[in-house]
Simulated assay, not measured.
Amino acid sequence: MSAHENKIKIVHFLNSRVRGGVENHVLLLLKYLDRKRFKPVVVCPPVLADILRVELQAMKVDIFELEVKSPFDIRDMLRFISFLRREKVDIVHAHLFNASRASHFLAKLAGVRITIETNHVREAWRKGTLKTWYAIDRLFSRFTDCIIAVSKANADYLLEVKGIEPGKVKVVQNGIDTRAFDAQSRPATSIKAALGIPDDAPLIAVIARLEPQKGHIYLLEAIPEIIRKYPDVVFLLAGDGVLASELKAQAARLKIDRNVIFAGFRSDAELLLRSSDIFLLPSLWEGLPLVVIEASAAGIPVIATAVDGTPEVVRDGETGLLIEPRNPVVITESVLRLLDNPEEAKKMGQRGANYVRAHFDISQQVKGTEAIYMELIAGKGVKDLANVTHTG
């Protein structure tokens, strides 16, 4: 058997149509996965394939375009089973429950040995007795060998709320390439200069999809009081989403549109963060947000809601400020505290950079994920794959 044939073939299954934190998580994992042991393939809807194609091609990761939207998508379900059998896939690693529900039963039918789900977020949008009973989740978990929680809080949600079998849940905290966010120096090209923002104007970055989950409406309500004291402050909102028009109308209604820039999706998060003075994330729920880790790595203080896994990254009063969600008054107070005390803010940023470099580097996430792959392979008694050597 050739070295190529003996690689562990892993399908990363995504059933989403937009790019967000989950998709960035997958891209980072693929970038640093040990290619001497693993051969990854991405299976995702065509619209997402178009968004990710350039980056995946640069990483030499193949794409199989497929979308399973309902149990009646028989044609695509059969195509997926055929693909798995033809490619002799060893592991199907789905991201979010919607994706594991669509892929893991089919994977088992195709003879795939191992199925894994990464559960990236608490599903707070699920309402009603039936949806929050999570019976469907427990049913489909029978076809899942392991569920990776991206934070300790995420694991608690899986165990205590969803009622997932404890032996199936393992924690691998999110990570980033901390080297890409050099906190030691300001960038040569500043976002402020590019956007015509005066260099001495405070810049507060908010990188998040414009969706209800992210709590932008409460942030905008807080801004009028902030600009009364700091009339030159600028809030840079980077991200796209269904609330774009509504949020722009809200900013105009509050007469703060001069202080708020809707920048759309940005691929230069490093530059944006290193040009900013504060990062703010007013989410209503999360998993373990990559962007908070990125902001800390860039050396700027973070103000974020104390939801789910976020407190695992932000140490309140040390690396940033944790606030309650849905509270514009608390947002105002926290922003003013950091603007009024720039030395305190600077020290928070420095401590945050040190903390995430020690605890949230991508190498730790990749190592933990690869360890789960090999542990499951060994547990299944797959001797030919268990003998794939570690290449360092």
Rank of each mutant, 00 (worst) to 15 (best):
L284P: 06
P311N: 10
S276R: 14
T310I: 12
R266C: 04
L280Y: 12
E318P: 00
F279L: 00
L284W: 04
P328D: 10
L321H: 07
D316V: 02
V330D: 08
W285G: 01
I303P: 10
V260K: 04
F279N: 07
L321T: 13
V329L: 14
E294Y: 09
E270T: 11
V313K: 07
S276Q: 12
V302I: 07
I293M: 12
R315V: 14
E324Y: 08
I300W: 10
S275T: 08
R315W: 03
V307G: 03
D308E: 15
T310R: 08
P328I: 00
L271K: 15
S275E: 05
P328N: 08
E324M: 09
D308Y: 06
I293S: 09
V307D: 02
V291A: 08
P328K: 06
G287H: 03
P282A: 12
G317C: 05
T332L: 00
F265V: 11
E324D: 13
D308C: 05
E324A: 13
A263C: 02
R266F: 03
A306M: 04
E286P: 02
W285V: 01
T332G: 04
V260P: 02
P289A: 07
E270R: 13
V329D: 15
E318V: 14
R274Q: 13
P282N: 10
A263V: 01
G264S: 07
G309N: 02
L280R: 13
A304F: 01
A295G: 09
S267C: 00
T332Q: 15
L273T: 05
P325L: 05
I303K: 12
V291H: 10
I323M: 03
L280I: 14
D268P: 06
I300Q: 11
A304V: 01
G287R: 03
G320E: 08
D268Q: 11
E318C: 06
L322G: 07
W285Q: 02
L271E: 15
S267E: 12
R274D: 03
I300T: 09
A297G: 06
L280G: 06
I331S: 14
A306K: 13
E312S: 06
V302Q: 11
R266D: 08
L272Q: 08
P301A: 14
L288F: 01
V314G: 05
L321I: 15
F265A: 14
I300Y: 11
S275C: 04
R326T: 12
P325G: 12
P325R: 08
G317S: 07
L272D: 12
A298H: 09
I278R: 14
V302E: 13
W285D: 01
L290K: 05
